[in-house]
Design a protein around this nucleic acid. Sequence first.
DNA 1: TTGTACGCGTTATCAC
DNA 2: GTGATAACGCGTACAA
Lengths: 347, 347
Amino acid sequence: MTDGKARPDSSMSRVGLRDVARIAGVSTATVSRAVNRPESVSEALRDRVNLAIEQVGWVPNAAARALNSNRTGTIGAVFPALALGDFARAIDAMQDALAARDYVLLLARSNYDPELEFSQVRKLVERGVDGLILVGHSRAPGYQDYLSRLKIPYINSFVYEADAVMPCVGPDNAQAMAQMVDYLVEQGHRRFSMIAQTTRSNDRALARYEGVRRALEHHGLAIPPRALFEGKWSIAEGRALLRQAMTLDPRPTALICGNSLLAVGALLEALSLGVAVPQQLSIVGYDDVEFMSELPVPITTVRVASDEVGRVAADCVLDLLEGKASRGQRIPFEIVIRASSGPACDT
Amino acid sequence: MTDGKARPDSSMSRVGLRDVARIAGVSTATVSRAVNRPESVSEALRDRVNLAIEQVGWVPNAAARALNSNRTGTIGAVFPALALGDFARAIDAMQDALAARDYVLLLARSNYDPELEFSQVRKLVERGVDGLILVGHSRAPGYQDYLSRLKIPYINSFVYEADAVMPCVGPDNAQAMAQMVDYLVEQGHRRFSMIAQTTRSNDRALARYEGVRRALEHHGLAIPPRALFEGKWSIAEGRALLRQAMTLDPRPTALICGNSLLAVGALLEALSLGVAVPQQLSIVGYDDVEFMSELPVPITTVRVASDEVGRVAADCVLDLLEGKASRGQRIPFEIVIRASSGPACDT
DNA sequence: TTGTACGCGTTATCAC
DNA sequence: GTGATAACGCGTACAA
């Protein structure tokens, strides 16, 4: 039974550790221990302390704790955009993985702008994040130095390269696309076109393009420069770029799309134009969102478990933080063959 | 020219205000002022201080600052999910609005679980967020008390009710759906079916349903219980529910979908089944994502500027924080009529 | 305009 | 096992 004078919502200045200590009749040190290392304190005291905490409604002050321990329990992440299927799913999963280990996510976005990304990182660092999760691995020189100078661990996500110096968690973009190309060549395709997200300050897009280029080269093939189209990521853009690709002469028999939105746009536009998919044109994408499989003509694509990327990236930083050296992880991908691709037409 | 002993990346214990003060030959108080209220210090000193800051690479410690000022420069947000088109866009915009005013976003997700939402909020509060952005306005009793007891401002987003006691930022879900119903009735529809996200612990879904119900009632119409289907939010679910709706006898002439994914699923399934849209069935949705307008049959829907919601919500909390009383804001919606809806068939 | 000195709430180091 | 006390790094009265 609490007597009236100790209501938890008392409008007094906020309750602190000392108040709890006073009520429980112990020292502040004991309260601290009872909370942080319960096993190091006698059971009787532990109970007294917990009771007192309940009574006064004490909530530990994270700032004070951080000031003292040099750790904030906070992980920062900077993503190019949040409203993109794969990133959103990754963040979702990241959040859960962090919460499970009692960390909290400080989120920022860079809008695909390296400068902005840098400044966001600085802001997060000032906020005292214990670790960072970034996207991609290409950084401006000054930026790179800044990061390595920091003592806080960071992870590059959505990329994987075996020889990378920093831990990264993601699929091997280039290899995934190469595998897709192998499949298409196997299907008899020889004339390719590609529509891709602009590779400027986007190393994932660049890696995908490189994967395509090298795989084709390996088969003695290539995408002529005029058959390569770059643009933003949207369905509308995919539609527009497909129209351009269809003006090529001779027409390509296979169209490789750098991401899911472009693929969806390309497919829908092909349907609108009456281009038969896959008879006249095979369309393949990258990344897998629900839409791609539900469209009138489901789209062949590279499936990457984006949530895996998020979850693993989160666990990786936390491992680094706790000293367990973590070397990053390759996230598997899978070529999902659907109705939008098939044997090359003989035209 | 810096002499060797003062490298910014020196592995000494982290640089602090005192180091800057020492280098600049001033007191710590002056450095603090020069940083936080530059106008209150002479120009010469300001320059000296800034130079020293650069030299030693000082970064203010947010924890110490927070401890002292009781403000963290952090806003917490708890969303049901992040990987959902509208939420993702809102978070995107929120993030920008906060960054513009030098705040940072602490993000958590509740997975539509009120208990989890509550615990996430507690965690954010312990982290010392200055304000909160939540979704919806229905809360469990204990939760509600907890919130009102806190001295920190919060905003309910994605909902708007003129008589709400807490500031909210969002569209009037019920009114939007009512307006959609009016349109459909005007088009001659009398037999309705609705597929909706489960209304359990989702007041937005509930409000939309209520809007439909009341509007129909106003026209002397109703959706019979067996014509109301609830499920999760996904395209696949929309497909499944449409199949169920099509088994009704007599068939509905208009199908109202509670969100965008359900609408897309319903439309695609209708196409698959050979149900003519809108001749045999008008399909309307809620919310607007790019897909809806790009499908073979573009979908009539309620368009809400989700990014507006995020932006305004962010600005609102910050206003509250700065004492400018803010009463929330109604975000406008718009009925976008596309090819998926039309006059009722006379069958 | 500038410097001194204290306090913010917690944890860690010592004694006991 | 427990208690006193000194940091942690910054902001800010207050005095100069």
